[in-house]
Write a protein that binds this DNA or RNA. Sequence first.
DNA 1: CTGAAAGCGCTTACAG
DNA 2: CTGAAAGCGCTTACAG
Lengths: 336, 336
Amino acid sequence: MKNNITMRDIADKLGVSSVTVSKALNDKDGVSDELKQKIKVLAEEMGYRYNALAKSMKEGLSYNIGVIIPERFAGMDHQSFYLNVYQSITRVLESHEYYGILHILNSKDEKQLQLPRIYHEKKVDGFIILGQISKEYIEKIESIELPKVFLDFYDEHADIDSVVTDNFNGAYEMTNYLIQNGHREIGYVGNLYSTSSIQDRFLGYYKSLLEHNLKLNETYILDDRDEHGSYIDIKIPDQMPTAFVCNCDQVAHNLIQKLTKLGINVPDDCSVVSFDNDVYATITSPGLTTVEVDIEEMASHAVNFILAKIKDETKSFGRVLVKGKIVYRNSVKKIG
Amino acid sequence: MKNNITMRDIADKLGVSSVTVSKALNDKDGVSDELKQKIKVLAEEMGYRYNALAKSMKEGLSYNIGVIIPERFAGMDHQSFYLNVYQSITRVLESHEYYGILHILNSKDEKQLQLPRIYHEKKVDGFIILGQISKEYIEKIESIELPKVFLDFYDEHADIDSVVTDNFNGAYEMTNYLIQNGHREIGYVGNLYSTSSIQDRFLGYYKSLLEHNLKLNETYILDDRDEHGSYIDIKIPDQMPTAFVCNCDQVAHNLIQKLTKLGINVPDDCSVVSFDNDVYATITSPGLTTVEVDIEEMASHAVNFILAKIKDETKSFGRVLVKGKIVYRNSVKKIG
DNA sequence: CTGAAAGCGCTTACAG
DNA sequence: CTGAAAGCGCTTACAG
């Protein structure tokens, strides 16, 4: 490091103390405006760069937040939805003079309950966990003393702060919309034993059926993935409903491809709605009517929570739901 | 910070000095094996966590690398190809006890030549710039004294280290492949004035034509995007070639959708090959024969270069090409 | 308004 | 093999 100008260098040139330089550069009281101005100008001239590390040392804060994404959510398979969320997170963090350090949690570490090195090296002041992790890993994470926030999933334990989309309500409104369009035989696509968001979306769908006095027909509930989360070939029932609620856009895409192959046209023969409004929503033909997850809002909540918890560790927010927004396209047909 | 155990705390409990603890924990010479063992056990017991910040301060290194992605490459539009690269980068960095800090460079900052705050705060020891930035911003980046590596693009200035896919060779081999399959009328899709990778791929395609004594037909060169990089409606020529080389999978996808609408079947009426092997390669029907960019290899090079330059600032690598690999699917038909 | 002193938690010579 | 001293670059009381 050659170009290493410190506050002391500036102080020496001006014949003042480094304390005064510190105050001036941080716009704190205790320096005359005149001197402050002089110092700022000289700092600029000398190409001074603030050393955030020193402040960190003093305060015991790294000003970094670790963002943990399980590797199965970070790959191509999931359309990097989570990477887009990560991007929003870093943007919000930056506006608070914080930075994100991404940690992809690989399956081996998850199984062996290995915490990321950024934890062991005190490189971060807290963790945002983005995407469902195993029960055991949740417990491991809980055991550490740093603030943490779960994003896009939650655990039955009430004492962990989490930010999730309002899956229940979104699916409920989606199903209502189908019913408004005359549909009475409505199926659901998603493995109910896979993730909590699939479950919640299912329950929202179910509530809408109940409210409208419609029977839940079990042959209309289709599996979309196996227990490891890998997508499987969707089995189309002999007896078809007039519409499907899919748990996500990618699955809707898979479903529509499958239906098309069987000569079933969407939306003419069968309507389809889904969740996420990711690339699959527009890539699919017809475009999908879907619930858009409010990524910005979720990221913003998660960041605000974690920063509040760093400042005051007694703060607690519980489970916070972020409402989605229906985006209308052409995958639903009015019938009846 | 309550649970703040330091080396000194361990030292005090054992009646030794913190120097000895430091040596023991870092497996350095100068401590008896016996004592070293004792120290390690106690550290574990006390829940000691190493403070990387202190080391950073001492050495003047943050052990972070800034990864700059222009925002236009980070959004949905580009299918987060770069976010996947970022993921590989962080993985390689972690294996070197380094961490990545992602900075999405927004268009305003790029225009105003605003350097990221992580630079001004000495939060990073170097930069990997991922994705083409403006000439002016390149100059700005060049002016800073930290090591930097350009990834997936390069500049005419020879003195900047960069890692890029071998676009020229990939397109050349792809076109050869089409010719082997009997094609003689081959088009190219991509705005030649947009990015250097589109240009290089075009030139590889052109070289293959030249080598096989095939004429370059200008009406077969189709624009895919405007000067801002936004995709445009592709204009299909009246006189069609029998095959197209597309500059990327997404554009191939757009092209195929367009052709399909016009009743032109791929690959029966027209073959298509492309670049990237991203989601669009498998989402498109038929699956695309395409060149896969070796993300791992590129990330690994970029990281190794930047770390080498941090250790020894005189190190220089120039422009390094990483070969891609053809993935064969069903978008090419043998003819003639 | 200005500054001397102490400290954040390590590591690097150097001395014993 | 072990440790006292100094220093990395700031900031926070506190004194003048």
